[in-house]
Structures are given as C-alpha cells and as structure tokens.
Design a protein around this nucleic acid. Sequence first.
DNA 1: CGGGTTTGACCAGCGC
DNA 2: GCGCTGGTCAAACCCG
Length: 298
Amino acid sequence: MSDNNPFYHDYMGTGGVNNAFSFFGDQNPSIYDQIPTNTQTPHQDFDPSSYMSTLTECLHGSMDYNSLSNVLCSSSEVVCPPLDQGAEIPLTPNSLVSSSSSEAGGEEDSSKSKKDLQGKDQCEDGDDDKSKKVSKAKKKGEKKQKEPRFAFMTKSEIDNLEDGYRWRKYGQKAVKNSPFPRSYYRCTSQKCSVKKRVERSYEDPSVVITTYEGQHNHHCPATLRGNAAAAMLSPSFLSSSQLIPQDVLFAQMLTTPTNQNQLPINYSVYNYQQQPQLGPEYGLFQDMVASLIHKREP
DNA sequence: CGGGTTTGACCAGCGC
DNA sequence: GCGCTGGTCAAACCCG
C-alpha cells in the first residue's frame, strides 16, 4: 500500500517516522537554526513500540501530560523543561505548540471565558456600537493566560478533521506568508471553552495543521459516534478509525515546549503512517488526541 | 426558526 | 508612537 501512496515517498523516504518531520523546517530553517541537531530528528534509536506503550499509559490516565513529556523527551534526548508554564509561544506552521498541564485546563478558563462573557454581557449594558467594541477590551495589566495547547499535523484532503466534538467556526484569517487562511473554531458545548485552529501548511498544502487550545470539560458528544471515551478504548475502535476520515494518510503530533529563554524546541511525539499493519496504532493516535482535548474526570 | 458560516471591523500584543 | 499581525466579535447570510 505504501508503494501506492505518494505521500509515503514524499515524507517517509529512507528515514522512517522521523524523516516525516523534515517538511517542517526545510524552507524555513529559522527555528532549526537554533535547535540542536538531535532535536530535529528524534533519536535514531527511536522505538515506536515504546512510544506506544507510553501513550497507552497516558490514555488510560495512569500518566499525566508532564510525565508523558518527560518520557518522550528523554527518549528523544531532547532537553525538555516541564510543560507547566502555559508559556505563550508564537504558533506558526514552523512552531507548533503543546504547553500542556494536567491541571491548567480547568483553572485557566476563567480569564479566557471571562473575556468572552465580558464581551457578551457588556454588550447588553452598552447602548451603542462604540461601547460594544470598547467593552471588549481587556483590563490593562491583566495578562492574557494561555490554555494548554497542542498541535498535530495530518495529511488530509479535509481541512476540518472529525474528532468527535462539535465545533462552531467563529473566524477566519489570512495568514502571513501563506496562501491558505486559518480557521478558528470553538467547541459548541456551552460550558466548554476549547478552541481549535485549522490551517494548511504553506510548505505542503496537503498537510493540515490543527491546534487545540484547552481541554474539554465534557464528554465527546455521544450521539456522534457513540460513547467515544469508552468506544475509543475498545479493540474494535482501534482498528476501525472512526473519528478521522479515511483519507488521513499521515498524522504527526508535535509539541513545542520552551526553555528558560523561550526558545522553541520542536520534537516529534508521535507519527502515524497509514499502513494496513498500523491500523491499531492509528486508532491509538486518535485516542491520544481525544484524551488530550478531553478533560479527565478527577 | 435555530444553528452554523462568512466576513469586515475592532482590539491587543509585539517589534521597530 | 506606529504599523503589523493574530485573535475575536457580531451582523448578515445561508441552510436544513
């Protein structure tokens, strides 16, 4: 199958999973210029099976995100600070982010959702358009807090990949240096402030970059695909690839923690190539996506 | 009619 | 201070 897959040759080439990362920096080496070589291409002894077991632990809740990052970092020999700062990192196609913390999601929404509410609430108070606009302004000195974020890339014809949650588009912006617009989505669940951004890589239009921000405080809508939380852990799900359309040929999860100097470090966490023998792992990738964007019950 | 999308305008943050 | 850019809002529009 891989022989018939044009993307396989494009990106998997001779280096297996790790070479898939290459399209991230070839034409824009600015980030990589600052990164030690071994962070560009994760360790050559990279062992997908150990990654899978790590991910499995994470999925089943026995490992938190920091532990996950620690394991992943050590296995790829990347110096990786704890991902608990919620650091503000510029996100571009060359700088994907996962500054996640197992607690941050629930605590951080307040400021963000506050802003949203502020806008809506004060619209009712205001009696003209001007006041509406002004009311949206955030209080000075109130540093905007970032939700934990993570991003992953998929090779897909479809921009907005089905992940089991319901999203409402609230904006679209042209992206500098990219012919493709970036779309902004918000979870339609009332009390959920999770957002996601979807854009195509300007370096490779076949690659969709999806960035999630925040963690869902509710379960995946059961009506869509059944009880996803349970279903995704079932063997039948793992081989059925229900949540993401079949035309996803490649998926790679990325994180970009920052060190003390806010230097972004990119490293591959997980990489999937759609091949028959990897079917179950494809499901596991989806599990991971779902688990990261879904806030676990305490 | 309700919910989702489109799109122009506004605002904040950042770099110069 | 100014300009640029990303993120968000909200009215208008679309669609089932």
